[in-house]
Amino acid sequence: MKSEHEHENQVGARHRSSPFGRIEGMPPVLVALYFALLSITVMFLILVVAYVATRLRSGAPTGLYSLPRYFSLSTIVLVVSSYIIAHAQRLYAQDDLGGLARCLGATLLMGSVFSGLQILGWRELMTNGVPFQGVASSSSGQFIYLISALHVVHLVGGMLFLLVIMLRVVHADRDAVRTLVFIRNPYHRRHLKLLATYWHFIDVLWIVLFAVFLFMY
């Protein structure tokens, strides 16, 4: 007859092997992030489907206007920012708070440049004959403004979170004791992971959106 301890171990093993067990084993903030990313994905999927449907329904040939070159430049900038922030956790593991602060600062700068290029892209759209007339407009071109703007809003949300983390890193780097406490706190490591995950998601999301615009514009 199995002992009570062996029975508990088997139950625990089955619990951990199930999808729900893995979810329950995650930190709540990580679960919340994944649900938020899922919600964002669904929202943009709906908008993209509506854009493509409106574009096809209009019957206008693709390539009628050129996609703003600033959108192409902003895509490159965002990819570079994603590459930069990928080094954040390595720098944290190496106790290099100075390098981590520079990494986060460079990522923040790239995010700001991306947002600025998006605004310039909107101006170029207007120049190309696609004026912004509001969300209720039946023109498929209006979806480009809406989708791009919503993406920028989500990026800015990530930038604010990044700014908070960067300020904490800079503050901790000024004192040896604060540096030690900061490095040994798993709370900060988790936040860096959340930030990197969110930033990479926003990067991939824009690449997909840009590809849709490129082939359907």
Rank of each mutant, 00 (worst) to 15 (best):
H151L: 12
S66Y: 13
V135D: 06
F35C: 13
A36G: 02
H15N: 10
L37V: 02
A149F: 14
M1P: 06
S112W: 09
R90Q: 08
V52R: 02
V169L: 04
Y51S: 01
A53S: 13
M43F: 07
L163V: 06
N185D: 14
F71H: 05
N9W: 13
P27V: 09
Q142C: 05
Y70G: 05
T54I: 06
L73I: 15
H200C: 11
E6L: 13
A211W: 11
M1A: 12
V181E: 08
I165Q: 02
V212G: 01
R184E: 08
V31I: 13
V212A: 06
V130W: 04
E6F: 09
L38Q: 04
F213A: 07
Q142V: 09
R189S: 05
H200E: 12
A136K: 11
T197K: 05
V152L: 04
K193R: 14
M166V: 09
R102P: 04
G99F: 07
L125Y: 00
V204L: 15
A149I: 14
L205M: 13
L150F: 09
Q142G: 08
V29M: 13
T179Y: 00
G116Y: 11
M159D: 00
Q133T: 10
D173F: 03
H188P: 07
I23K: 00
S139K: 06
H15A: 12
M126W: 10
A53Q: 11
H154R: 09
V164C: 10
L108D: 00
L30C: 02
I23W: 01
G121N: 02
I119T: 11
L155Q: 08
V113T: 07
A136P: 03
L146R: 04
L180H: 08
I40N: 07
S3P: 05
R184F: 02
E24N: 03
A149R: 12
L108A: 01
S17I: 08
G98I: 08
M43I: 11
S72Y: 13
R189G: 04
R22I: 12
S148T: 10
I119L: 15
K2P: 14
I76L: 14
Q10S: 05
S74R: 10
A101C: 08
A172Y: 00
S74I: 13
Y83I: 15
L205P: 01
G111R: 00
A53Y: 06
G63L: 13
Y70A: 12
G157T: 11
E24I: 05
M126T: 09
L91T: 09
S82C: 13
F132N: 06
E124G: 02
V181N: 06
P27N: 07
G21Y: 05
E24G: 03
E24Q: 10
P27F: 10
G98R: 07
L195T: 01
L104N: 00
T62A: 14
E8Y: 08
H188M: 09
L160I: 14
R16F: 14
V169E: 01
T62W: 05
S140H: 03
V48E: 06
G134Y: 04
R168T: 00
D173E: 07
G59Q: 03
Y198R: 08
I165N: 00
P131Y: 04
V49K: 01
W199P: 01
C103I: 02
A50D: 04
V11F: 08
F44H: 03
M159V: 02
V204G: 11
V11W: 06
Q89D: 09
